[in-house]
Amino acid sequence: MAEVEGARSAQPVIVGVVPGQPADVVKQAAIFASRFGTELVCAYVNPARYPVEEAADGSVESASLDPDFADDHETVFDESLARTLRDLLATTAVPWRTLALAGDVAGALGHLAETLDAAMIVVGAHDHSLGGSLREFFSRSVGAQLAHRQPRPIVIVPVSHRAASEPGRGTDS
């Protein structure tokens, strides 16, 4: 879904997006895309699904890990998240689009970056709450996983405590 008209360019910037993440993550990714003169690809990965088929543009068809709770609505990009992205990127001239992916978050973002020959992957940092620290300890952050697997640059945008406490802003990507 290209929100700003323009041909897709080589080596886009990929940003991992989730509902409630701080706006700074997407804004910083848009700055990189603008400076590189390239497209911004906003990718949401649903870990409760697995990829079945992949297209050349990076989009995937997916299926639910639990067939008892299969929901076709989960195969499309969340409209509420898309609205948030439209609002955040409305003042930029960066061409951008959304993709709904499936599977392991770091694996899916890394595979997308390989498929699109991305310039970089941008993700947000985890929160520093006790719950966030325990989660990161047991599962490592997406940024750390990408840094260990990827041949391309990974940019981890820090989440400030001030930004995380502002209304309507989350702390995790």
Score class of each variant (00 low, 15 high):
Leu99Trp: 02
Ala164Cys: 10
Glu166Asn: 02
Gln150Tyr: 06
Asp104Arg: 10
Val4Gln: 05
Glu61Gly: 07
Gln11Gly: 11
Ser9Trp: 04
Val142Cys: 05
Ala144Val: 09
His161Trp: 02
Leu130Ser: 15
Thr115Ile: 15
Thr38Ala: 11
Pro167Lys: 03
Leu81Gly: 03
Gln150Thr: 11
Tyr50Lys: 06
Ser129His: 06
Gly131Val: 12
Val45Asn: 01
Asp24Leu: 03
Pro51Lys: 03
His126Met: 08
Phe137Gly: 05
Asp68Val: 09
Ala2Phe: 12
Pro67Asp: 06
Arg86Trp: 12
Leu130Glu: 15
Ile14Ser: 08
Ser34Ile: 05
Val105Ser: 08
Tyr44Pro: 00
Ala144Leu: 11
Val122Asn: 13
Ser80Tyr: 00
Val17Met: 02
Arg149Asp: 13
Thr98Ala: 11
Pro51Glu: 08
Pro22Ser: 07
Ala93His: 10
Ala119Gly: 07
Ala119Asp: 07
Ala108Ile: 06
Gly107Asn: 14
Leu88Ser: 10
Ala102Glu: 01
Ala7Leu: 15
Pro47Asn: 06
Ser62Tyr: 08
Asp172Phe: 09
Thr38Leu: 09
Asp66Asn: 14
Gly58Cys: 06
Asp72Ile: 10
Val45Glu: 02
Ala48Thr: 12
Ala56Asp: 13
Pro167Glu: 02
Ala90Asn: 12
Glu136Pro: 00
Pro19Ile: 02
Arg162Trp: 02
Ala90Tyr: 12
Val41Cys: 01
His126Leu: 08
Val142Leu: 13
Ala102Phe: 00
Asp66His: 09
Asn46Trp: 00
Tyr50Ile: 08
Pro51Asn: 04
Leu81Cys: 01
Thr171Gly: 13
Ala163Glu: 02
Phe138Ile: 12
Ala43Gly: 08
Gln28His: 15
Val15Pro: 07
Phe32Pro: 10
Leu134Ala: 01
Val17Thr: 07
Gly110Phe: 05
Ser141Glu: 02
Ser34Pro: 07
Gly143His: 11
Tyr44His: 11
Thr84Lys: 14
Gly131Thr: 14
His126Tyr: 02
Ser9Cys: 08
Ser165Pro: 00
Ser59Leu: 04
Phe69Lys: 13
Gln150Phe: 03
Val52Gly: 00
Gly143Asp: 05
Ala48Gln: 10
Asn46His: 04
Asp72Tyr: 03
Ser64Pro: 07
Ala63Arg: 11
Val157His: 09
Leu109Arg: 09
Thr38Gln: 10
Cys42Ser: 11
Asp66Lys: 03
Lys27Thr: 10
Val123Trp: 04
Leu85Lys: 08
Gln11Pro: 01
Ala163Lys: 02
Phe138Tyr: 13
Gly58Tyr: 00
Pro95Val: 10
Lys27Phe: 06
Val25Lys: 01
Val13Asp: 06
Leu146Arg: 05
Pro167Met: 06
Ile154Asn: 02
